[in-house]
Nucleic acid binder design. Structure first.
Lengths: 184, 184
DNA sequence: CTAATTAGTTAGATTATCTAATTATATGAA
DNA sequence: TTCATATAATTAGATAATCTAACTAATTAG
């Protein structure tokens, strides 16, 4: 599943760590003339940071045998519980993936008895999906860890930094959701 | 590979967009008492933003038939070119993945004639990996787009916001690299 | 000189995605 | 009313990115 944690290696010929500098040099040689280098530099760091954030979160969830995308789906079920009519189609369009992909995720989650399907009476082509007691139990185990992991991403920032960062973060998040035509 | 772009859907029963509010409510019910809610809120946004950033970047690279991880590997080859001795092991430990996974990536890249392997003379167990002319050409096509995409992640932030964000970003990036025991 | 170690690959698995085809049901138009 | 079309879900089959374990070949160390 996730990336490796252990060291399989020992004495090997490591590639030296270069840091960001050679990437910036390369950028000078290869960026289009109208690309703002400072922004591209920051964007590169954001991309690297994003990779690392997903690794950290998936690493922390791994011990519960669940991934971010599956937890995502379960949270959707939980948060829309009053809404009786959650269907694979609805989940697919919300998660931005195909119905066939949702079928696969639901198979996996159903096998573990974390979600349940039942056929709709109103329209017998449709399936209603819900979280089970066992699924709810799992989510309650996972969430405290999940929130702690989220909070830990900010470790090392002081209060002032957090305050100014929050404004920027809200803006960035809003912008990119607009760009992706999404939103949770 | 990537997520879908197209709409397979039409009239369906959409799940309404709830925004972050119900997640925060859930956090209030499920976070450990020592978890800082403001930090967890920001961390959640960072996680969502990270997902979106990777989607945007992979989307922009997709038209060149390459993914972020493969481009990463090619850039490593390019930046360490003077270093004659780049091996699959070295790449694996640098990329934080297993040697077997690197073998698979190299097979894929070699099939397209973007990288080349040759056996080491000094130690005939070892293989030296290099980028080919064709690979270099591809990278030169891709990079201007890549930098533009990176820069575009900052769209909508004004100069002041960029300046303050840069400080925080450098710190966050440094912290998480320390945490993952990595560094490029 | 043999045993252990190392580098790389192969074989086989899982997860997450996709597209295309299939099945069952529902709807709309002649 | 029936038949063509549309929709929901699943199935079948593919690709990508990862993993572990086993294997082969080469090197090194006791």
């Amino acid at each position: 599943m996730g990336k490796n944690t252990e060291r399989e290696f020992s004495s090997e010929q490591q590639l030296p760590t270069l840091g960001v500098a050679p990437y910036l040099k390369l950028m000078n040689q290869t960026a289009a003339p109208d690309t703002e280098h400072n922004a591209a530099h920051m964007g590169l760091l954001m991309l690297w940071l994003s990779d690392n954030i997903l690794d950290v979160v998936d690493g922390d969830l791994a011990s519960y045998g669940i991934t971010e995308s599956k937890l995502d789906l379960m949270l959707l079920l939980l948060l829309h519980e009053e809404n009786e009519g959650i269907t694979p189609s609805g989940l697919a369009s919300r998660l931005g993936i195909r119905r066939a992909s949702v079928t696969a995720m639901l198979d996996w989650l159903e096998k573990r008895d974390w979600i349940a399907r039942r056929q709709s009476n109103a329209d017998r082509r449709m399936v209603h999906v819900s979280i089970t007691e066992k699924g709810r139990y799992l989510v309650n185990q996972v969430l405290p860890v999940f929130w702690a992991t989220c909070a830990s991403l900010l470790d090392g920032l002081n209060t002032t930094e957090r305050d100014i960062f929050k404004k920027v973060l809200l803006k960035l998040h809003g912008n990119i959701e607009k760009r992706m035509g999404g939103g949770r």
